[in-house]
Nucleic acid binder design. Structure first.
Lengths: 172, 172
DNA sequence: GGGAGATACTTAACATGTTAAGTGAATGCG
DNA sequence: CGCATTCACTTAACATGTTAAGTATCTCCC
């Protein structure tokens, strides 16, 4: 707790304060990151008790709403990159929480679905999860929450057209 | 592009549609995640061209504003966990982008500062970075952006008091 | 002044993010 | 038909997220 007074005379003077930029802590990415972390911090303990990570939970939730999906489609729904999903599915399958079988019409595709055990696990997690979400909603305000979600959606839209990778010029 | 018609008669019926929950894609964590990803997708290519990851850039930015900081304080500013920061600092130091020296008064602490090379690198990245940020602001609207940041801050506040880990009961 | 406990990191171990490459299976077209 | 492309994943490799241990210092109090 002894807040030491910085001591700038600590040797040679470092080369700082020379590139003026927006206050870092108020940048949009940081705001979004902190907000999301604040939210997830509420859920993680509960998920952890049930042996699930955030991403595994996302996958189960995505699967719970449908009969079966292709891996690629699931990746889009759960917002995971292919490689991550590939690994996680391997593990979830080993734990018998999801099932997978190759599509008959196209041997490249595999259809993924949640298993009975998976459903059971979800049922045991969902109540707590919903309760936490409800508490968050209560604290922040349902109206404000809806408003926030709208703005986030609008932000996504604004940047969707912008693509996001075509501007490299000097290398390759 | 051949949108296959789901084919639910693909064998045994999977066990889905039994745990009703909010529409997954509209959950707050997902909204925040997607929004943040949409934003970062704009910055990553530019950072990558300069051989920096998002987190490395965060660290440099945090350091640019001050003379020197303790690692713990830097972790808070750059919003990184200790272990991540420890690894990244090791690498940034090896690349001579940051400097580190143990505090004289307390051998446990080390003071981190950005190097001249680090400043130079920042100077070469900052313009593009600022331009991208400006474009995002233009597209989404400066007013809405400020409003969004306010809401995100408010959300953090709402959940700050809630702590975020004291509710485990059955284990340990 | 010496040992218990708190501090400030660092390591370790495992899971995911991210990009690139690899693999086997469809497709298109000459 | 035959083969180059495209597709739908999976592997690989490296960086970070996340939690738990480990290590060296410091502090405090008897």
């Amino acid at each position: 707790m002894v807040k030491r007074p910085a001591d700038p005379a600590n040797g040679s003077a470092p080369a700082a304060r020379q590139v003026p930029m927006r206050d870092f802590s108020r940048s949009l990415p940081m705001s979004l990151l902190r907000a999301r972390e604040a939210v997830m911090r509420q859920f993680r303990p509960s998920l952890r008790e049930h042996g699930l990570t955030e991403q595994q939970w996302r996958i189960l939730r995505a699967l719970a709403a449908i009969e079966a999906v292709e891996v690629t489609e699931l990746a889009r729904t759960a917002f995971l990159l292919g490689p991550s999903l590939s690994r996680i599915l391997r593990d979830l399958e080993a734990r018998h929480l999801v099932e997978r079988k190759t599509a008959k019409a196209d041997q490249r595709r595999s259809m993924v679905s949640i298993s009975k055990e998976g459903v059971k696990l979800m049922a045991s997690v969902a109540p707590t999860s919903e309760a936490i979400y409800a508490e968050i909603t209560r604290r922040f305000g349902a109206r404000k929450l809806a408003e926030l979600q709208d703005m986030l959606g609008a932000l996504e839209q604004s940047l969707a057209e912008l693509g996001g990778a075509e501007e490299a010029s000097s290398e390759e």
